[in-house]
Amino acid sequence: MLDIHVEHDGEVVLIEVSGRVDSMTANQFGEALNQAIDEGNINIVADLSGVEYMSSAGLREIVAALKKVKRASGDLRIAQPSNRVMEVFEMAGLDTILQIFSSAQEAVGSF
């Protein structure tokens, strides 16, 4: 199970995720992202500072959500990925597609 905390900061939704994002739990992450998007939010920050592990199942959720918000001229930005999560982003080439920030505050402020 993941711990997911969602809060609104002006026009931006901050989704803080803690735990292991794997093939069992990635759908929880995806549901949180989709719920935010379905509520009309297109500027989203995913704070991954509490995520020590992410497999391809987690990447699928990020790519799906990113496509949705981009189509609506919004963005999904990432804050504080661990080295291991960053390595997975880099292998999949997502480090060049995603905007990645060293703090949630910086990511929220970038919109």
Binding site: S56, R60, V63, K67, K70, V88, M91, G93
Partner: peptide
């Protein structure tokens, strides 16, 4: 193999698992 340089809209989401395994 999926291509890491593929543009966002052309990404289909699958195939990364075995790609990571090989890496």
């Amino acid at each position: 193999e999926p291509n890491p340089t593929t543009a966002l809209e052309e990404r289909e989401g699958g195939g990364w698992g075995i790609f990571f395994v090989k890496k």
